[in-house]
Each structure stands twice: as structure tokens, then as C-alpha cells.
């Protein structure tokens, strides 16, 4: 549905050049929710803004539903953009217009017949659950409500795709969840393909089918969320995955425990059940697994868990145990000292 081919973008500033995008390619399937995650400055906003050409890539193309957006005429781009909805971290509503007008004005300006406008505004306000707020001004709404208006405004043009630039980053956790649920709902009910960018793992975890991890203008890893997260390869991906579990273990504890055996982090998805596996390990090999910390969280498609286990025993036996667990489809990784932020826990 959205196909980005070899995007590159360099900003020239007084302090030199910034390569915001370096040969980025990405494909989002129709009906999918795809998330791009990365730390601040990774180039996420630049990437998503190049999709509807709010920013012009220096090279590369993007096509939506087979139409090459980058080669369109000015008039063609205007038409194409009407079918690409976009929502933003800052909501970007007209302060001087009511909720109703915030949706109606763009409809009028894009040539929707007058007689259809009221019906559309009413319909989409109902979908986002703000019918009773239609005469309010944005300043009288909460952040979550403002984002709902922005979503209704985007939906009212009946787009094929929705781009979301950190739409939940300014919201509290509960409101974030309600907005994510709304995105999930419009994805399911209207089949709108969603490309979103975020720096919050929670967003990816909760609603994304596919994910790309960005760093320094490059995509370092991409694929189905479950695949990428159960077997992260790149350091940044690992950091993000670990951030969902947040096992707290001080270097002192790691230090004293590692004298008697390795500390291993185990990651498993819904299919692999870890408890019997650990029990089997204890029986089969000469090791004493001791669970230090554990956590199960929900990915969009299935549960995803992490255990931090201390294997008391000889190194060779521990290695056999690890091999056994790997064969059971459990991801393992040793936890080291002095690597707080690279640490796999």
C-alpha cells in the first residue's frame, strides 16, 4: 500500500550537514498498522513527512496504492494528499474555530458538496465519540479530545491511509490507550492502512502489526512486530524491547550472583510455555534455575514474556541447558555487568 524506495534526505545547516534519511526503504501492506520506532533525532518525522511530501526527499520515491507520489504534478499532489490523512503530536486544530468547523472547513475547502458536509461531520464526530462537543472550541478540550477531533478531521476525507506523527506522545498513559484503541478500531472498521511513528514501545506493542527500528537516519531492523521483538538483532532494538520489561537488577547483585552461575534472560511468546521448560531443565541438567524477575506483556497478536533466571551450576551444564531452551523456541541471552543500557534483562 505504501512503498518507500530509497529515501535520502540531507539537511544543510550552519553546523554542517545532517543526513536525516540514508537510503530508507519500507513497505507497508494494505490494512496493516505499521510503526516506526526510534529515539529522538533518528529521522522518524522526516521519514513520515516525506511520504506526503511535506518534506521533499533528495532522492527516492514513494508510492501509495501504486501511484508514485513523488512524480505527481502540483495539482495531482493536491488530489493525492486528500486521500492521505495525517495526525500530529500537536493536534494542529484551528484555535478560532469550533470542533464542528474544524472538521467542516477543510471539507469545504476540498470541494465536498455543502449538502454532504453536515452529514460527514456528524458521522465522524460520532465515531470518535465527541458529538456533544461540536460547539466547543479546542481550548476547552483535553489533549485526548483534541486528538479525537484531529482524527475525525482526517477520517472525514475518507482517506486510504493515515499517517501519524507521534499522535500520542503528548498524552497521558490512559488517554494514549484510548487513542490507540480508536486507531485500532478505524483500522479494523474502515480498513485504513496506518503508518505511525513513535518513540514509545507501548504504541508498537499494542497496535502494530509491523515495525521498523530507526537510528541515525537508517532502518536498522524491520519486520513483523512479533518476529522483531522476540529475536531482536540490533542493539537499539534490544534496548527498546528491554524497556517494556524493565527488570531492575543492580550491578552488585549481578556481580555476586555471577560468581555461582550465569544470569540469563529468557524471552518467549505465547506459544512456548516457559514453566515446564524450566522444570525440565532442572531435572535434565545439573543446574538450579532460580527466577529473579519475570514479566509478561501483551503484543498485538500474542503474549510476550521475559524471565530473568540465575542458573546455579557448572558452565558446561548451563550451556547445555541454554541450548535446550533455545530448541524450545525460547530466546536466551546472558546478562552482564557494567552494561546497564545495553544489558539484556
Amino acid at each position: 500500500m505504501i512503498k518507500i524506495n530509497h529515501f535520502s534526505k540531507t539537511y544543510k545547516t550552519k553546523n554542517g550537514q545532517i543526513d536525516a534519511l540514508k537510503d530508507v526503504s519500507l513497505e507497508v501492506q494494505k490494512g496493516e498498522i505499521f510503526g516506526v520506532i526510534g529515539y529522538s533525532g533518528a529521522g522518524k518525522s522526516t521519514l513520515i513527512r516525506c511520504v506526503n511530501l511535506l518534506e521533499k526527499p533528495d532522492s527516492g520515491t514513494v508510492s501509495i496504492d501504486g501511484t508514485d507520489i513523488t512524480s505527481l504534478s502540483a495539482a495531482g499532489l493536491l488530489q493525492a494528499r486528500r486521500k492521505i490523512g495525517m495526525i500530529f503530536q500537536g493536534f494542529n486544530l484551528l484555535k478560532t474555530a469550533t470542533v464542528y468547523d474544524n472538521i467542516a472547513i477543510p471539507l469545504k475547502l476540498t470541494g465536498v458538496p455543502k449538502s454532504d458536509i453536515k452529514e460527514r461531520v456528524d458521522r465522524y464526530l460520532a465515531i470518535v465519540g465527541l458529538t456533544d462537543k461540536q460547539d466547543a472550541f479546542p481550548a476547552q478540550l483535553s489533549g485526548g479530545q483534541k486528538q479525537r477531533v484531529a482524527i475525525a478531521r482526517a477520517l472525514s476525507h475518507e482517506p486510504d491511509v493515515l499517517l501519524s506523527d507521534e499522535a500520542t506522545s503528548a498524552l497521558d498513559p490512559d488517554t494514549t490507550d484510548s487513542i490507540l484503541d480508536l486507531l485500532l478500531k478505524i483500522n479494523k472498521e474502515f480498513g485504513i492502512t496506518i503508518l505511525l511513528i513513535t518513540h514509545e514501545m507501548h504504541v508498537i506493542q499494542r497496535i502494530c502489526d509491523g515495525v521498523a527500528v530507526m537510528e541515525n537516519g537508517e532502518i536498522v531492523e524491520q519486520g513483523e512486530t512479533i518476529e522483531v521483538f522476540t529475536a531482536p538483532k540490533h542493539g537499539t532494538t534490544k534496548k527498546f524491547v528491554n524497556s517494556i520489561f524493565n527488570h531492575q537488577l543492580s550491578d552488585d547483585v549481578i556481580g555476586s550472583l555471577s560468581e555461582t552461575g550465569k544470569i540469563i534472560s529468557l524471552k518467549f511468546t505465547g506459544h512456548s510455555s516457559e514453566e515446564p521448560a524450566l522444570a525440565v531443565v532442572a531435572k535434565k541438567f545439573d543446574v538450579y534455575p532460580n527466577i529473579l524477575s519475570g514479566n509478561i506483556t501483551q503484543l498485538k497478536s500474542e503474549p510476550f514474556g521475559s524471565l530473568l533466571v540465575h542458573f546455579k551450576g557448572e558452565e558446561s551444564e548451563t550451556q547445555k541447558a541454554i541450548n535446550f531452551l533455545e530448541n524450545q523456541g525460547i530466546q536466551t541471552e546472558e546478562v552482564m555487568k557494567y552494561e546497564q543500557d545495553k544489558r539484556i534483562s
Binding site: 486528500r82 492521505i84 495525517m86 475547502l109 476525507h157
Partner: peptide
Amino acid sequence: DRGVLEAYEAMGI
């Protein structure tokens, strides 16, 4: 606010 102008640009106005 630049953002609002941008939002309208993104809507093909």
C-alpha cells in the same frame, strides 16, 4: 502556529 498550516497543506488544500 506552523503546525496548523502544515496540517492544511497535508490535507491537499
